[in-house]
Design a protein around this nucleic acid. Structure first.
Lengths: 162, 162
DNA sequence: CAATTCGTTAAATCTGGACTGAACGAAGTG
DNA sequence: CACTTCGTTCAGTCCAGATTTAACGAATTG
């Protein structure tokens, strides 16, 4: 019955991911790999979560692009193996940061295109752009510091020690 | 043709809202009210955006719950009037903060329920909870400071000055 | 008190995007 | 060189949730 608490955690991670606007399966994968502690093959993940390999392939590459998971190509096997690096959250933060930066640039471009009338609209729009820009910076800085902390005191389980 | 840049801003705000996992119309409303600078009735908003009053009603109340918009019940008219308060972003931050706090509590409860085995799983799960908790706190602090800054130097257009 | 207008709710519809199944190319393996 | 296995892609399905239409209660006005 020890699998039950694991499953509940994986389930919760999926729900949270969904609430944050990312695919449910992406969250489940992070939970699964975090609990595993070591790298797992795409097939393992798919059967472990009871979803199609196609879904895992898609989502695990999305996680890779975000820096939340890394691919390990072992020499012996031609299977790819995947692990989350501590903390897996860091990637989430930089994804957020990137998103906000895009928002900032998009809005700022619109502000520039606005007539500089006395109604203050252009300043209002500029204010929005400014907000997104500082949000992006804040998140970026934090993701860096979070990574540093985690690297300092690493409480992550590894099957094979140093 | 000056309405065109306004529309593009409103459009962009809707797209961003959608990208952040909230209803498109909610973002459009924020954009509309921010440009308006003063309070607008529900009917105004609906016709201004070309959407149903039901949608506006639903979304504007969601914004109110988040603190991104406030309702003004004028004595003379029985219409409700709505405005965004500067900065409207602050509500978005506290919404995020709340969400992360819920995540933290949910995960922490699971961590407590986990067997304290030597595999370090419980610590891993606890780490996730910790992450969400500090994220929540960071966002909360920032939303407060953002509000303070905006209140200090208020560049918001008001039709009726002090 | 009838008539109008406002805001909300409930049911129905519509749509974006997650997920799957099947097919394909690449890379080993015998 | 046939055969198996792996990962990806593509077309199709499915579903959550956003939006709308219609109907309702409350408030206002004459």
């Amino acid at each position: 019955m020890t699998a039950s608490t694991d499953d509940r955690f994986i389930e919760a991670m999926g729900a949270i991911a969904q609430a944050e606007g990312t695919p449910r399966i992406a969250g489940q994968i992070v939970g699964y790999l975090a609990l595993a502690g070591e790298a797992r093959s795409l097939t393992d993940i798919a059967s472990g979560l009871g979803v199609s390999k196609a879904s895992v392939s898609t989502n695990v590459r999305m996680l890779e692009a975000r820096g939340q998971a890394i691919r390990e190509s072992r020499t012996g096997s031609r299977e790819d193996h995947w692990r989350v690096l501590p903390p897996p959250h860091e990637g989430m933060l930089s994804a957020m940061s990137d998103r906000f930066l895009r928002h900032a640039e998009r809005i700022e471009a619109l502000a520039q295109a606005m007539p500089p009338g006395a109604d203050g609209k252009r300043e209002t729009v500029h204010g929005f752009a400014q907000f997104y820009r500082s949000a992006s910076e804040l998140l970026h800085d934090w993701s860096v510091s979070a990574r540093r902390e985690a690297t300092a005191a690493d409480p992550v389980p590894q099957t094979s020690g140093t």
